[in-house]
Design a binder for these strands. Structure first.
Length: 464
RNA sequence: GCCCCCAUCGUUCAGCGGCCUAGGACGCCUGCCUUUCACGCAGGUAACACGGGUUCAAAUCCCGUUGGGGGUGCCA
């Protein structure tokens, strides 16, 4: 039997990292087994689905390198779902119910679900839609519904705790359970890999499948959730979760993909950062962890830095150039950057950024204006003995020195040696506004003499 | 309230009854390298939630406690 898995996002928002990981695990399993990976857009709720978001889901999946073999849209399959529901109605597994929410609550209280009030009342189908009449599914009163979860082991629910749930809304549109059960059956899905937040809907889907005549069920694998630092499920409101936003901030798709996979799964050999081909080779659903995992951006940053350093220099230049002209957070805006100038700086940048959006702060002092030095940095670097003297000497020699990196280094470091003072840091702070950053002299050689001297003398004046 | 699930360093993954005086990675700290920072390299810090069993032997199996999470919609 060939593996068929699906990723079924609802287009109600941008793809977030949790969904992306679900997609990834499905995709990994399909690729590992030579199976089929299906993208199924679950857009049965017209009020909440936004068609234009489907494109953004495509974009995020493609960005991550997740490709799909088949695609379906549930909004195009309503006829099938309605036929399925009609069968339930015909054989008594489904029934009409005209109870309002308040009426149910009045009968059973706040903490209980539906009480089966309309099971045998013979409520008739509404003349027109939206007359407040829904279709419910008759769940068994006894027995258990369960499955052997690939990740969690045996999970069981007493049928007595399962309410007769709604399968068709009062507006005539079938609920996602129906679509889900019908499609998994119709599409011959063999493995359902999805978030743990869906475990409790599984018995409903299982029951629906049986009502649909399924002789067996797919294997289920419920993934542990990705949580924030409060250990709560990642939320679109509270947390930074949109895959697209990470792409914009300068994360590499390979790094994001690799990191996401390490949340809940690890290879036996303890190697985390590795080509996707190796991961595909080693991946198996049964090895996935049960416990929720915290989305640690700092570790993502580390992965990203590693991937950035693995980039061919030309590729790094290409990918980071658009960020180079971005506004810097520390200093003034760098405005548009001359690509030829940036090309010379890129090699130094590549070695020390973890994200592309760190590029502007790295180069602003060469291509634009440096930020005002931090007071603490200033005190630490500039208030040492001899700083004024070194600055004077450096300026004097720089006025006539040959404008070339080696010479500049010699001038600055030489002056320091002669006076027995560390000269690199004061010059760096005066020039770049920061205590750390790229190597000093190569970029400095790309600046013009007047600008360099002006910055040095400005710092020198401040010392008096 | 009811249902379901989870529990190894701060974080993440490894460990699937003896190889564990618990390993890797991120973070943090120290040193080396070095024009600063970063990279790299060499070290260090730090965990089996608790209590009972089972067993010759438990981080690993069972039960309970505690703690955490998810669900409980005419959303998916």
């Amino acid at each position: 039997m060939t593996v068929r898995v699906r990723f079924s996002p609802a287009p109600t928002g941008f793809l977030h990292v949790g969904s992306a990981r679900s997609a990834l695990f499905n995709w990994l399993y399909a690729r590992r087994t030579g199976g089929t990976f299906i993208l199924r857009i679950e857009d049965t709720d017209a009020d909440r689905s936004r068609p234009e978001l489907v494109q953004s889901i495509y974009d995020s999946l493609r960005w991550l390198g997740v490709d799909w073999d088949e695609e379906y849209r549930q909004s195009e399959r309503f006829d099938s779902y309605r036929r399925a529901v009609q069968r339930f109605l015909d054989n008594g597994q489904g029934y009409y119910c005209d109870c309002s929410r308040d009426a149910v609550k009045a009968r059973v209280g706040e903490n209980a679900g539906y009480d089966g009030h309309c099971r045998d009342r013979g409520v008739v189908p509404p003349a027109e839609p939206d007359g407040g009449v829904v279709v419910r599914f008759r769940t068994p009163d006894q027995g258990v519904t369960g499955w052997d979860d690939l990740i969690r082991g045996r999970v069981e629910f007493d049928n007595s705790v399962l309410d007769d749930f709604v399968i068709v809304r009062s507006n005539g549109v079938p609920m996602f359970h129906v679509a889900n059960a019908y499609d998994d059956l119709d599409m011959a899905i063999t493995h359902v890999v999805r978030g743990e937040d869906l475990v409790n809907t599984t018995p409903r889907v299982l029951l629906l499948r049986e009502a649909l005549g399924a002789s067996d069920h797919p294997l289920y694998a419920h993934l542990p959730l990705i949580v924030n630092e409060q250990r709560k499920k990642l939320s679109k409101r509270r947390d930074d979760v949109s895959v697209g936003d990470y792409a914009k901030r300068g994360y590499l798709p390979e790094a994001m993909r690799n990191y996401l996979i390490t949340l809940g799964w690890g290879s036996k050999d303890d190697i985390e950062i590795r080509p996707i081909e190796e991961i595909i080779e080693q991946f198996d659903l049964v090895d996935i962890n049960k416990a929720p995992a915290f989305f640690d951006v700092r570790k993502l940053d580390h992965f990203n830095g590693e991937y950035i350093r693995m980039l061919h220099p030309d590729r790094f230049f290409e990918l980071s150039l658009p960020y180079a002209g971005g506004a810097s957070t520390g200093g003034a805006s760098t405005g548009g950057v001359d690509p030829e100038l940036y090309r010379k700086l890129a090699q130094f940048v590549q070695e020390r950024v973890k994200r592309f959006d760190e590029v502007p702060d790295m180069i602003d002092w060469v291509v634009g204006e440096p930020p005002e030095p931090d007071d603490k940095d200033w005190r630490k670097v500039m208030t040492k003995d001899g700083v004024s003297k070194v600055l004077d000497l450096v300026m004097e020699r720089l006025a006539t020195a040959e404008w070339e990196a080696d010479v500049l280094a010699q001038v600055v470091l030489g002056a320091g040696d002669e006076l027995g003072v560390k000269s690199q840091l004061p010059v760096r702070l005066a020039l770049t506004g920061r205590r750390s950053g790229m190597p000093l002299f190569e970029p400095m050689a790309e600046m013009d003499r007047a600008t360099v001297l002006a910055r040095l003398s400005r710092a020198r004046e401040r010392l008096d």
